[in-house]
Amino acid sequence: MERMRRLRQSKAIRDMVEETRVNKKDLIYPIFVAEGENIKTPVDSMPGIYQYSIDNLDPILKEINDSKISGLLIFGVPKHKDEVGSSAYDDNGITQNAIRYIKSKYPNMIVVADVCLCEYTSHGHCGVVDGDEILNDATLPLLCKMSVSLAKAGADIIAPSDMMDGRVEAIRDSLDHNGFINTPIMAYSAKFASAYYSPFRDAADSCPHFGDRKSYQMNVANGREALREILADDYEGADMLMVKPALAFLDIIAKAKEYTNKPIVTYNVSGEYSMVKAAAQNGWIDEKKIVMENMIGMKRAGADIIITYHALDVAKWLDEEE
């Protein structure tokens, strides 16, 4: 008889043969920076998450830096919104100014800049709108302008999340043409039209004012199509490929890992975070155990990098185990 339990008899042996581990450098923490002053506004649907104005960023930046995670993903919340999201590519926009501030304080902190128009448009969609249609090709030049503006501000990585066709190639060409040959693209490649995003839309003030995003984000039922999206972004020059959300799409992460040798990123999104937080606050689950099991699940599926609102807690828990 083969006795599998021999390697489970003590914690020391279990630790020695453990196949999957989470490292602090695997983690990226999302932050929301709002235009204005003296802002630290709690996101009611995301316990522990806030919108910060630039003048209130220092404590959270210090916490991120001290945690030794890899860095942050930044989302801007502007005061001005219009039909074409002009604040997104304004060199003096909230996100650009926040990036400059962060890099002045922590030049070695990785800043990933989300590229999408939804936080900046008056209609809340991710591209240029004509009637009820979101125009793919008319949106691409604006995404390129936004990407170059964010790179000029000091963003280390450009992360297009809009799901317009051809945007990776267009952004890559624009970055290269403007001297940002070495700026990587982290593409939201398989981004599903998921119900798990609802709390994020509270945080980023980006809920669409009509319709939904199913004409450009992916059908949650389609796995083969997700691989086509991933391979298309790979071909167009993305340096890292993302699957979003994470927990309901672990099969897509695993397949992506088989299909490409590029780093695989997953985004443990707002709804996934908020469900855990709500259950923990009600005493229904052990938050630490559940979160760490979720992290292991994402890593085991094949994720190299995890964007998660739990990042700072996970870093603390990992320190406690050392």
Rank of each mutant, 00 (worst) to 15 (best):
M1Y: 11
E2K: 14
R5F: 15
R14M: 15
D15E: 15
R21E: 15
D26C: 13
D26I: 00
L27I: 07
G36F: 02
P42D: 04
S45P: 01
Q51H: 10
S53D: 08
D55H: 03
D58I: 02
I60A: 00
I60K: 00
I64D: 05
S67K: 03
I69F: 12
S70H: 09
G76Y: 02
V77S: 08
K81E: 04
S86Q: 07
S87Y: 06
Y89V: 02
N92P: 02
G93S: 07
N97D: 12
N97Q: 15
A98K: 04
I102G: 01
Y106K: 02
L117F: 05
E119P: 06
G124C: 02
G127C: 05
G127E: 04
D130Q: 14
A138P: 03
V148K: 01
G154S: 03
D156S: 09
I157D: 06
A159P: 03
S161N: 09
D165R: 01
N178T: 12
T183Y: 07
T183L: 05
I185T: 00
A190I: 05
F192C: 05
P199E: 12
F200D: 01
D205N: 15
C207K: 14
G211Q: 10
Y216S: 08
G223E: 09
M240Q: 03
L250Q: 12
K257Q: 11
K257N: 13
P263S: 01
S270V: 05
M275A: 05
V276Q: 09
V276W: 08
K277A: 14
N282D: 11
G283W: 12
I285R: 11
E293G: 11
I296S: 14
I296P: 04
M298D: 01
K299I: 07
A301T: 03
I305W: 08
I307W: 05
I307M: 11
A311S: 13
L312E: 06
A315C: 01
E322T: 08
